[in-house]
Design a protein around this nucleic acid. Structure first.
Lengths: 159, 159
DNA sequence: GTAAACTCGACAACGTGGTTGACCAAACCG
DNA sequence: CGGTTTGGTCAACCACGTTGTCGAGTTTAC
């Protein structure tokens, strides 16, 4: 009643489309990563490695960047360590801290991820046209609250 | 080298934007739902109730619609039952089946969700323009594989 | 310089949402 | 009729998150 009755799309579909888009990209990334020698990188690990970055970081810092508790971040780092993607080294300047650094294996995963992300974006650009894709990104940036790149997926789903 | 060097956006940002958009909508939905008398509806419950629908469904069917195992669906139905959103009734025509039906409380939650989704979409339409939003939806539909509305978030993140 | 306050990393208990595997009972199908 | 499929449940387990506690090390304030 209030406004246009165009009724073009149910509002329920929009979040589903956004999630499906996200998921499509992440699924394809990991499928490709698996093909390229990184079969056990999981989404959570990928995000954690991104948060660690080439410069390394402490577990607490990773937690902050990902928007999760330091304990959660610590556990993820544990798993990454077991898989050989990162190593922990003592910080000589501060005995409390343990710097988490990507191993060469971790760097390789990160490099390949970046390349695959570019390929996937290029595919979208081909399917939609560069302009449309750019518009999509611009529009998304305008409607999502800035600054917030919170990746606490599992915990968020549960409360 | 291969193509345009515009370098407008890192491919890494696209999935983040999509996820942030999804999350923004879902978070705002649940904040509003909480304000309207449904403080304990969580994202997983909302999706499950959508899957049950006004006609009701069996737990196995819910699992199929959500893309999760029947056991997982059964557990979610358990929680919904405790919260008073659904009830289980025996199917007189098939003694194995237990039909899961939304209670009036569940229907209310679903109705309000639909209304809130429309409001949120209207907000986006206001911020972006109706045409841009429609384009965004169209584009998303063309790049995500059709049919697939898989909501097994937690399990998917882990594997 | 020492006491208070903060920070890092770790341990433990727990919650949520998912998975497999095993079963039984009921229904379907040859 | 007997064999297969399907629905629901139990039990164990896993991944990822949470809070609370704690000791050790660092910083800040007096």
């Amino acid at each position: 009643m209030a406004s246009a009755m165009a009724e073009d799309t149910s509002g329920f579909e929009l979040p589903l489309l956004l999630f499906a888009g996200f998921r499509t990209i992440i699924d394809r990334l990991h499928a490709e990563l698996a093909r390229q020698g990184h079969p056990d990188v999981r989404p959570a690990y990928g995000f954690a490695m991104q948060a660690i970055g080439r410069g390394g970081a402490t577990a607490s810092e990773v937690g902050r960047r990902l928007g999760v508790s330091k304990q959660a971040a610590g556990k993820t780092v544990d798993r990454l360590e077991v898989l050989g993607y990162v190593e922990r080294v003592d910080d000589p300047a501060d005995a409390r801290r343990k710097l988490v650094r990507l191993t060469s294996h971790g760097i390789d995963a990160l490099d390949r991820s970046a390349a695959i992300f570019e390929e996937l974006r290029a595919e979208w650009a081909k399917a939609l046209g560069v302009e449309r894709l750019r518009a999509l990104e611009v529009d998304l940036r305008t409607v999502v609250p800035p600054g917030l790149f919170r990746l606490d997926v599992a915990g968020w789903f549960g409360s």
